[in-house]
């Protein structure tokens, strides 16, 4: 089976671990082999968190520089920071709502303009889907569903060969019962954003 390498970049607390688990569960439902790797511990204290998910027949659980087929970004500046993971054929799907690092507030560095960052990314990779996933998550009922909005965009982009039915089922399996409807709604809003983009 063809190997697809997906990197998820986020800031600690944005829900990338749950998003990875949903994709893993969906892969099982679709009969796609999957392996993934994540980093816990000190990095979770508001730092950058990255998960690697390898679909298909490869054995490795991590992804080397320049070898991501898909980059899923939860935060626009983190997508730029992770550009070294991408090559000219990489497809990028990202949230555009910034989460400014604290270092900016204390004057250590400047947060770049989001539109400018997005056009610099677009020039370098195969294609870029950039949506305000945070706004859509709020529309779905909670900013915490931003991770699922992005999964909707990822599946609708067709970059990953998982079926939407399996991802929806995985969401119902992994999300807390009271939040399943909200998350499914978030997923559909993410899909819709790609269809109209």
């Amino acid at each position: 089976m063809e190997t697809t390498r997906l990197i998820v970049v986020a800031v600690g607390g944005q829900g990338n671990l749950l998003a990875s688990k949903v994709l893993g569960e969906a892969a099982l439902l679709d009969g796609v082999p999957v392996r993934m790797s994540e980093i816990h511990g000190m990095a979770q204290r508001g730092g950058v968190v990255e998960s690697a998910i390898v679909f298909g027949d490869a054995e490795s659980t991590i992804i080397s520089d320049g070898e991501a087929d898909i980059l899923l970004g939860f935060e626009p500046s983190e997508v730029v920071r992770a550009m070294g993971r991408c090559n000219a054929r990489t497809r990028v799907i990202t949230n555009t709502a910034p989460l400014r690092p604290f270092t900016v507030a204390i004057g250590q560095g400047v947060y770049p303009d989001v539109d400018e960052m997005m056009s610099l990314v677009r020039e370098r990779v195969a294609d870029l889907i950039a949506i305000d996933a945070l706004a859509l998550a709020r529309q779905a009922g909670s900013p915490m569903t931003m991770n699922i909005v992005l999964l909707g965009a990822l599946i609708a982009s067709g970059a990953l060969g998982l079926s939407r039915a399996s991802v929806e089922k995985a969401i119902t399996l992994r999300a807390k019962k009271a939040f399943v409807e909200m998350n499914l709604n978030a997923f559909r809003l993410g899909e819709g954003a790609v269809a109209t983009a």
């Binding site: 800031v11 520089d65 730029v80 090559n87 000219a88 990489t90 690092p101 560095g109 610099l120 370098r124």
Partner: peptide, 15 residues
């Protein structure tokens, strides 16, 4: 594999 060109990308503040 060659990574995308990093030159021209803005510096991202540390996190």
């Amino acid at each position: 594999a060659s990574s995308v060109e990093k030159q021209g990308l803005p510096e991202i503040p540390q996190r």
